[in-house]
Structures are given as structure tokens and as C-alpha cells.
Simulated assay, not measured.
Amino acid sequence: MADSVQRAFDLAAEDYDRTRRRLVPGFDDFYRAAIDLIQFPHDSQLKVLDLGAGTGLLAAFIAYSFPQARITMVDISSEMLERARARFELAGERFRFEVSDYGVDPIQEKYDAVVSALSIHHLGDDQKRSLFARIHGALNDGGVFVNAEQCRGATPERHRFHHERWITRVRELGVDDRDLAAALDRMKFDRAATLEDQLQWLREAGFRDIDCAYKNLIFAVYRGIK
């Protein structure tokens, strides 16, 4: 499964940023909610880990909002990380890049914030629960985990409704048939969980002050504090 996901996103790297705004209805609110949940002063010298960082889109928002943050970007796709390297090529040592399968590989260092956007839903449920526990262990006391994620509906009927409404919305936003077909092809690898299950797994991992700040169709943004 990991190899299949890697190949799919290697192939998608070139078009990923171009299509993101049309494929995520409420794009600005979605990413803004993720930044708002990193509740540190904006001049903090944060150490941030971005899991499934892709082309560095979420990292770019964090870097702008926290200009002294140091960000490590991890992704299974080397092609995605090459795009991230190009995005931040003038930024020097603020950014690090690691090709790694974070679903199984250990988190070696301690961080003030661990973040992810539209990535963890590729893991199976047991892997998600294990990852949440490892993230909790990798955070400094008072650190935050923020996940801007794709979720299943609480019932098959709600999931089908949200998925159909998502397709309607992205067509209204102007996504073309080729980009929509490519997105649907990548979604074949999705193993999304319900929002309710994910919040419960955060509790089981030891997180506190758990909060969902954004929900729109198949998308949600939530956090937990260590």
C-alpha cells in the first residue's frame, strides 16, 4: 500500500498545488483553521514537524505565520519533497526535508508542534492510532498536534452525501474533468476514518483540550494538546 501511495503522489506532484484550491472547498478557511490551532505567540521559535508535507503548502502557511519557526517536512514521495525544496530554496536552514514513511518510521526528535494536512487518511485505522501515540510522545509538554484532514461520514449514508456534495462543489469551483478524475483516482488509496473516531483516538493517546475548529463536507481540522 505504501508503495502505491508513493507512486500516485510522485505522479501528482507537478499539478498538486495548482489544483488544491479547487479540490478543497473552503480552502482558505481550512488552512486558516490549522494555523489558528497552533496557539503559540507568532514570534515563538517553534520546532515543527510536518507529516506528509507534500509540496510544502501547509509549511508555507506556518512559515509565514511563525517567521522564526523551524520546520521539518516528511513525506514518502521524493517528487513531492523536491517541489517543497524548490519552494523554500532561499530560506536556508529553517527547513529540513526527509523522505520517510511516517506511518511506520519512528519520530526521532522532540517538537513544539506536529502538523499534517490531507495525508494521515492514507493510513489504516490501527496505524492512525499508533501514529497518534507516537506523536504524543514526540511533543514537548504543552505541544500541539494539528491535523487538517479528510474524514469519513459518521454513517455510510452521510459519507455518500458528503462525497456527492464535494463533487458538486468542486465542479462549481471550476475543476476540469482531468483533474477531478486524477483526484478520484488518488482517493482509491484513501482509508479515511470518521472524525468521531479520530478524536477518541487522540483521547486514548493522552491528548487534552481536544478541539475541532473546522468541518466542511469531507474535510475537518482538529487538534490535541500534550
Rank of each mutant, 00 (worst) to 15 (best):
S4A: 08
Q6F: 11
Q6M: 11
R7W: 09
A8H: 09
F9E: 02
F9C: 03
D10I: 07
A13C: 01
Y16R: 00
R18I: 08
T19S: 06
R20H: 10
R21W: 11
L23D: 02
V24G: 10
P25A: 01
G26V: 02
F27R: 07
F27G: 06
Y31I: 05
R32E: 03
R32H: 07
D36L: 07
Q39E: 12
H42L: 01
H42S: 07
D43W: 00
Q45L: 02
L57I: 15
L57T: 15
A59V: 06
I62C: 03
S65E: 09
A69L: 04
R70S: 11
T72N: 12
M73W: 01
V74N: 10
I76T: 09
S77D: 08
M80D: 04
R83D: 09
R85A: 08
A86Y: 14
R87V: 03
F88N: 02
E89P: 02
A91C: 07
E93N: 06
F97R: 12
Y102A: 03
V104F: 07
Q108D: 04
D112K: 00
V114Q: 04
V115A: 00
V115H: 03
S116G: 01
A117L: 03
L118M: 14
I120M: 05
H121Y: 10
L123N: 10
D125E: 14
L131D: 04
L131E: 06
F132R: 07
H136F: 13
A138P: 04
L139I: 02
N140C: 11
N140F: 10
G142A: 02
V144K: 10
V144H: 06
V146T: 02
E149L: 08
Q150S: 05
Q150A: 08
Q150N: 05
R152K: 15
G153Y: 08
E157P: 10
H159D: 14
R160T: 15
F161M: 15
H162Q: 13
H163L: 15
I167W: 12
T168A: 09
R171V: 14
R171I: 15
E172F: 05
D176S: 13
R178D: 04
D179V: 00
D179G: 00
D179S: 06
A182H: 14
A182C: 06
R186K: 05
K188Y: 12
K188M: 11
F189C: 02
R191K: 06
A192F: 13
A192G: 11
A193W: 14
E196I: 13
D197Q: 14
Q198P: 00
Q200W: 14
Q200G: 14
Q200E: 15
Q200V: 12
R203L: 07
E204D: 12
G206E: 07
F207P: 09
D211C: 13
L217V: 13
I218D: 13
F219Y: 08
A220M: 04
V221N: 02
V221R: 01
Y222F: 11
I225L: 04
